[in-house]
Computed example of a mutant assay.
Amino acid sequence: MFKQYIGWRFVLATIAVLIIGTTIWFVSNLSRKIQEEERKKVATWVEANRELLQTDSDVNLNLAVDIVTNNTTIPLILTDEAGKILDSRNLDSTRIAREPHYLEEQLKTFKKQHPPFIMEVDARQNLYNYIYYGDSLILRQIRYYPYIQLIVVALFIGLVLFALSSTNRATQNQVWVGLAKETAHQLGTPLSSMEAWLEILKDNESNATIVSELSKDVDRLKLITERFSKIGSVPQLEEVDIVAQVNNMVAYIRKRAPQKVTITSTCKEEELTAMISPPLFDWVVENLLKNALDAMEGKGKIEVSIENHPTYVTIDIADTGKGIPKMNFEKVFKPGFSTKKRGWGLGLSLARRIIEEYHRGRLYVKSSELNKGTVFRILLRK
């Protein structure tokens, strides 16, 4: 169980988590240091202002003036004891002029971010001003950087996984297409030989019954060969009566179904046409009917319902078998997934591909209930 997680995906995800974790830790420490430095700068700025306010002599105050004027990054708001805004610095002047409550909103934000500095204005009158400050643009950018990096890394990993998944899927498709075409090619030689033997058997009238049954089997093998040969290539769609096409396949399966299984087909319309590839479409219907037979284990009922809609046609194949758990509604279409003791788990996967990729329709589990049955739906655009 543990081995399935030890692979390149797990390693890639672990490295990404370590990078993000290290970055967040480093940036958090850096943010705290910058925040502390900004607090010291504001404290120095406040002290310089205090010196300017309290000095009456002609003492050289160039240093204090430089400190006050050189703060161009940290936003500040000066208020009196009553909370009235007296001045501001390093805030958006355009928004101050355009938005009447901009400074009040910034003041509320600053109060939440940092405690204010108190500056004595007049000791005799006991007057004080309060200086509130916020985070500089650089500090805010540094704080957001890990999250931006997280999004970028996540997108990069997603693109890598998608590319690798697409490559693997394309490789698998090439393997299955090659296998299907090779199977069709290998079946061609014995089929030609069987057709020749049938011609010889036809010369003897006593073999009429044998010839008839063998001809059906040969025609069946030729149909299967044609289906395999069409996999991987774009099929030629033609306008076909869906009702007749489905009923022919139902009749074929009915003859081969156990006696205790009843198969019915209903449609309110006598004829419904849609663009399909008859050999591939028959394969899908046959596969669904055979799966229904397997699910019922020799007894039950299969109902095939064809319905006409304004822009599409639906074919529902309902059985009274053992049902499918809801968690497996999508898994049954995955290659290799099978509940049978024998089988490769490719039937439904190929069926969905035929309907969705070649016919631009849909194939899905409409409903299912354990020990009561399942309904598969084919949806074809008109």
Score class of each variant (00 low, 15 high):
residue 4 Q to M: 11
residue 6 I to K: 12
residue 11 V to D: 07
residue 11 V to S: 13
residue 19 I to R: 07
residue 21 G to C: 06
residue 22 T to G: 11
residue 23 T to G: 00
residue 24 I to C: 06
residue 25 W to I: 12
residue 30 L to T: 13
residue 32 R to Y: 15
residue 36 E to I: 11
residue 36 E to Q: 13
residue 36 E to W: 12
residue 50 R to M: 14
residue 50 R to N: 13
residue 51 E to T: 13
residue 51 E to C: 07
residue 53 L to G: 05
residue 60 N to H: 10
residue 65 V to L: 12
residue 69 T to Y: 08
residue 73 T to I: 06
residue 83 G to D: 10
residue 88 S to C: 07
residue 88 S to I: 04
residue 90 N to K: 09
residue 92 D to A: 12
residue 93 S to E: 15
residue 94 T to W: 02
residue 94 T to A: 13
residue 101 H to I: 09
residue 102 Y to S: 04
residue 105 E to N: 13
residue 110 F to G: 04
residue 115 P to K: 09
residue 116 P to L: 05
residue 118 I to G: 03
residue 122 D to H: 08
residue 124 R to G: 01
residue 125 Q to S: 07
residue 128 Y to S: 11
residue 129 N to M: 01
residue 131 I to G: 00
residue 132 Y to M: 07
residue 136 S to F: 06
residue 137 L to V: 13
residue 146 P to F: 08
residue 156 F to C: 11
residue 163 A to M: 12
residue 167 T to A: 09
residue 169 R to W: 10
residue 172 Q to H: 11
residue 172 Q to A: 11
residue 174 Q to M: 05
residue 179 L to I: 04
residue 181 K to Q: 15
residue 183 T to R: 08
residue 189 T to M: 10
residue 189 T to A: 10
residue 190 P to K: 07
residue 192 S to H: 08
residue 194 M to V: 13
residue 196 A to D: 14
residue 198 L to R: 04
residue 214 L to I: 07
residue 220 R to L: 09
residue 221 L to M: 15
residue 221 L to Q: 06
residue 225 T to I: 03
residue 227 R to Y: 00
residue 228 F to I: 09
residue 232 G to Y: 08
residue 234 V to A: 12
residue 237 L to E: 13
residue 240 V to E: 08
residue 243 V to C: 00
residue 250 V to F: 06
residue 266 T to R: 12
residue 267 C to Q: 05
residue 269 E to K: 10
residue 270 E to Y: 05
residue 271 E to I: 04
residue 273 T to I: 11
residue 276 I to P: 03
residue 278 P to M: 04
residue 281 F to E: 00
residue 283 W to Y: 15
residue 285 V to T: 04
residue 286 E to M: 01
residue 287 N to C: 05
residue 287 N to A: 09
residue 288 L to P: 00
residue 289 L to G: 01
residue 292 A to G: 05
residue 293 L to S: 05
residue 297 E to N: 08
residue 297 E to M: 06
residue 301 K to H: 11
residue 302 I to T: 03
residue 304 V to W: 01
residue 304 V to R: 01
residue 305 S to Y: 03
residue 309 H to P: 01
residue 315 I to G: 02
residue 329 F to V: 00
residue 330 E to W: 05
residue 340 K to L: 15
residue 341 K to I: 10
residue 343 G to F: 09
residue 345 G to A: 08
residue 351 A to Q: 02
residue 352 R to T: 09
residue 355 I to T: 07
residue 356 E to Y: 12
residue 356 E to M: 12
residue 359 H to R: 11
residue 362 R to P: 01
residue 363 L to T: 05
residue 364 Y to D: 13
residue 369 E to I: 03
residue 370 L to T: 11
residue 372 K to F: 01
residue 372 K to C: 04
residue 376 F to K: 02
residue 376 F to Y: 15
residue 377 R to Q: 13
residue 378 I to S: 03
residue 378 I to W: 00
residue 379 L to Q: 10
